[in-house]
Nucleic acid binder design. Structure first.
Lengths: 217, 217
DNA sequence: CTCCGTTAGATTGCATACATCTAACCCATG
DNA sequence: CATGGGTTAGATGTATGCAATCTAACGGAG
């Protein structure tokens, strides 16, 4: 996997996550190869990789489509994220350097500014940045790759629902609180806030529907 | 992906998990294609898929090798498994049918029998069966695929250490206790036991080394 | 004797050609 | 007019050829 295949992965992932290729849309190999200026081989490899990431779905002899997550799965995804990212926050509270925490603080603060002005695109970008940075602080590539596909799945939600104002304020507040918990070197606090943060997002994005699993924190 | 590619994936995965291809061993495309009786193309796809599953590691222009997980990553893997499979146990306690629980009970009972006679191969097989069955009860394909690669990583451990007798008894006891918690329809109990079960396995398999993250259950 | 540059062999990455499968269309028939 | 089957066009799966890159062995200089 090198230039051609790698670029294909990046461009396809970008277009899917940005919504340019809508959920359910068919992704023909020849068409993509044509658009990207390469042959079918690297396109095929890119599609398989994205399938492993959970962004596309491949059916034998029938080709690839952008995934459409049922609400039931998304519910589970938020529950899993709540637990794994809670673990990341715990690990970070123990092992992150002060400089790491400063960087996270910067992102959270900048995010708060954009949120106050309603610049949603920037908010989404910084939110993804915040979470991936924090997960990176866990110091384990396994954590990062495991959580990666789950985060992608939730990003695809962007085109479906949006945060209301109250949820947005909660989210901003959580981000800042986690930074505070990290500075206090308090693993339990950090984990608990991150857990609440993602359960809050779950409620806001999926709506007040009946949840698949009831939580008792 | 059809016959050729699919069979290649299955056979390679089997050989890696069984230890026939040792961690760190190089997996040349032409050699595998020759052994499997297909061309390089399906072999390449199989290797990419296994890379996504976390069983092999591919470096550009340098080929594929069986992964070698550092102890640090394995530590995180058990922590993540403890949380996700704890969630599976919780979900199962709420949604599993009585027949599902019966099936799990059968597996756990049979496993206990083999453990008493020290038939380790059967124990390993039924243990994997138990966990994948329980995770399947969560009713979410996302849970199953997310946890899949993590379980593979821990299976590779088999060649490194083994359970001592006390750890084996604990493990068997946990399996049976989880079934009891499911029958009682007690999500908190089920989740707590599964959490303990995997932290116990972590301690037994990784040894009493310094953990990357301290737990405060 | 050691170290480094060169070169030959082998291996991977990409492109293309062939085989097989899916699905849509058309036409014949009840 | 609806339905069923056969046919055909397009797309995916597989095999193979070619170019680029890496590995390792070899020989020469210090």
């Amino acid at each position: 996997m090198t230039a051609a295949s790698d670029r294909a992965v990046e461009r396809l992932r970008e277009r899917i996550l940005s919504g340019e290729y809508a959920p359910g849309e068919r992704l023909g190999e020849v068409e993509l190869a044509d658009k990207l200026g390469v042959s079918r081989t690297p396109v095929r490899e890119a599609l398989r990789l994205l399938a492993a990431e959970g962004l596309v779905e491949i059916t034998t002899n029938k080709g690839a489509r952008v995934v459409e997550y049922p609400a039931h799965d998304l519910d589970h995804i938020f529950l899993i994220r709540a637990r794994i990212e809670g673990l990341s926050a715990r690990t970070a509270a123990i092992h992150a350097s002060d400089a790491d925490i400063d960087k996270l603080d910067e992102i959270a603060t900048e995010l708060a500014g954009y949120a106050a002005h309603g610049e949603l695109d920037e908010v989404y970008r910084l939110n993804a940045d915040y979470h991936s940075t924090l997960n990176g602080l866990s110091g384990s590539a396994v954590v990062l790759s495991t959580i990666g596909s789950l985060i992608h799945a939730t990003v695809l939600l962007r085109t479906l629902h949006s945060f209301d104002e109250a949820a947005m304020r909660r989210s901003v507040s959580h981000h800042l609180e986690i930074v505070a918990a990290l500075r206090a070197r308090d693993p339990d606090w950090a984990e608990a806030v991150m857990h609440a943060h993602l359960l809050s997002a779950r409620a806001s994005l999926l709506g007040p529907r009946k949840h698949a699993v009831e939580e008792t924190p």
